[in-house]
């Protein structure tokens, strides 16, 4: 029963991959080596597709893998498997939290959690910027000319200005950026 196997493998991935989409990567590598359903090279392609389409990367990866192995049903099965453990765990956590919301200890814990959460989001932001606008490796190599995506930085500044001034829905800026990317390329 390949569907059951797909479901179980991705259930395991969803249960054990803590910390976001790319945390599923080692599990996929292992899965490829173990089952031969897809190759390590396929994984690289899957990452490229997952990052170039909307949606959580982990979800995209599991849909892609499942579909490659066993078509539409395969894609649905593995995605369901991936998502199910998070949904169950989060429902339990949410239920417990709702009960203990007023609890002093829980409140104290959150006072520590929020700055940490903020730091992780900032770190994610910095790593996105470092892959797109600034390239620290080039700075280390002393190659300053290649270290900055000048066109990109100028466009980012314009976007930030528009975003602050007009406060439109982020989608509008995403669409605008896609068009600008098509025309100019960053």
């Amino acid at each position: 029963m390949i569907y059951l196997r797909l479901f179980l493998e991705f259930f395991k991935t969803g249960l054990l991959a803590v910390g976001g989409g790319l945390a599923t990567l080692p599990f996929l590598r292992e899965l490829a080596a173990k089952t031969g359903w897809f190759t390590q090279k396929d994984i690289i392609h899957m990452i490229a597709v997952s990052e170039s389409t909307p949606g959580p990367i982990g979800v995209n990866m599991s849909t892609y893998t499942g579909f490659t192995v066993k078509g539409i049903l395969g894609g649905l099965t593995s995605t369901f498997g991936l998502v199910l453990p998070s949904v169950i765990v989060c429902i339990c956590v949410a239920a417990v939290l709702q009960k203990f919301k007023e609890n002093k200890t829980v409140e104290n814990a959150f006072n520590g959690l929020r700055p940490a959460s903020m730091a992780l989001i900032t770190a994610a932001g910095i790593s996105v910027i470092c892959g797109c606008l600034v390239f620290p490796n080039e700075i280390i190599n002393g190659n300053f000319a290649a270290a900055f995506n000048v066109k990109g930085i100028i466009f980012a500044a314009i976007l930030l200005f528009l975003f602050k001034k007009y406060k439109k829905h982020p989608v509008i800026y995403i669409a605008l950026s896609a068009v600008m990317g098509l025309i100019i390329g960053f």
Partner: peptide, 18 residues
């Protein structure tokens, strides 16, 4: 090319959220 534009936008959106 389209993604290269979207990537710049994602930088800006995350910076604003932060």
């Amino acid at each position: 090319r389209a993604l290269s534009g979207i990537a710049v936008c994602v930088c800006v959106l995350i910076a604003d959220a932060v």
